[in-house]
């Protein structure tokens, strides 16, 4: 007979992971995400090798036309790590939604099951419960991000065209670590709205609206690029052309709030294709994550458990 009491904190963390692993919605998004992770290796590899081949074909064509001064291969100076830059788009899109669902379900699940009163009539403090829940969410995200890192790193190790330079694996790890920070922001946003919103579908759509603002609207306002073009990694890597007073002002004013751009800037910095200050962006991103986690913890602390008792 076991005598040692399992830690209450560990039980909540474990419970968080077990229940998540049983959620079909989560598993579906995870499957899409992982499929895209594998596919992105192919996309990166095939695009890079084809573009190289197209360059050589173009050079041959121009030479045949009698052109003598031919521009050097524009891809020569580009960091080989940027082959993985399309992963950034999947993290930006599917990753964020996956994170929102993880945060959202974390609390909606408890509400739907009607078990919150059962949790809080037991001797566990609110603070400890919240801490365990947040840790569970963070562990789930870490596991997912690490799996994507493993896919990228393995393909870099086994596909000759994707071979990384010295320090490449560490840089790739840095890229995924930054991605984890970005995902944590949306998981916290999902959790926050699931606590403060009464209606389940509104609770899901609020963080999605935040995401639309972060990924489409703010970048559009600060760069003048069209929304869909912002999902092209090359548009992201390219320097933003000077576009006059409005965009300069908007850039200065709104850039600090543009979570999506803070992420792309700091993540691309890790891959060696950055624009702007990637370290400053990372710190700003960390600050946003801190605020989002703080807000959701505060909301959870104030949540009236008895609200769900009067049905």
């Amino acid at each position: 007979m076991s005598a040692r009491a399992p830690s209450v904190f560990a039980s909540v963390v474990r419970h968080e992971l077990t229940t998540l692993a049983r959620e079909k919605t989560f598993l579906l998004l995870l499957a899409i995400f992982m499929a895209m992770t594998f596919f992105s290796v192919y996309i990166g590899w095939s695009t890079r090798t084809t573009t190289e081949a197209i360059y050589h074909a173009s050079v041959a064509y121009l030479a045949a036309q009698g052109v003598t001064s031919i521009v050097a291969d524009p891809l020569t100076g580009v960091s080989p790590l940027l082959v993985f830059d399309n992963m950034l788009v999947y993290l930006l899109l599917i990753g964020a939604l996956l994170a929102i669902v993880i945060g959202h379900r974390s609390f909606i699940r408890e509400r739907a099951a009607g078990v919150l009163p059962l949790v809080f009539v037991r001797p566990i403090s609110r603070a400890r419960y919240i801490g365990a829940k947040l840790l569970g969410i963070l562990l789930a995200l870490t596991g997912i991000v690490f799996a994507t890192y493993a896919v990228s790193a393995f393909s870099a190790a086994f596909i000759p065209a994707l071979r990384l330079p010295a320090g490449g694996y560490a840089a790739l790890l840095g890229f995924y670590a930054v991605s984890l920070v970005y995902l944590a922001f949306f998981a916290a946003a999902g959790l926050f709205f699931s606590v403060i919103m009464k209606n389940e579908s509104t609770a899901l759509f609020m963080p999605i609206l935040v995401w639309v603002a972060a990924v489409f609207i703010l970048p559009e306002l600060t760069t003048g690029q069209n929304p869909v073009a912002l999902l092209n990694p090359v548009t992201l890597t390219g320097a933003i052309p000077d576009q006059g007073l409005f965009f300069t002002a908007a850039h200065r004013l709104l850039s600090p709030f543009s979570v999506g751009q803070l992420y792309t800037r700091s993540a691309l910095g890790m891959l060696g294709g950055g624009i702007g200050n990637s370290i400053a962006s990372l710190f700003a991103l960390l600050a946003y994550v801190g605020v989002a986690i703080g807000a959701s913890a505060f909301a959870l602390r104030r949540y009236a458990v008895t609200r769900d008792l009067y049905l």
Partner: peptide
């Protein structure tokens, strides 16, 4: 405590549901 209208975690087994609440209560065995 048994509230009205309780549904529990649908995707967990009866044992998993009960074990979770037992642990939260600090039950040893």
């Amino acid at each position: 405590y048994l509230p009205e209208n309780i549904t529990f975690y649908n995707d967990l087994t009866a044992y998993e549901n009960l074990a979770y609440f037992a642990r939260l209560s600090g039950v040893k065995n």
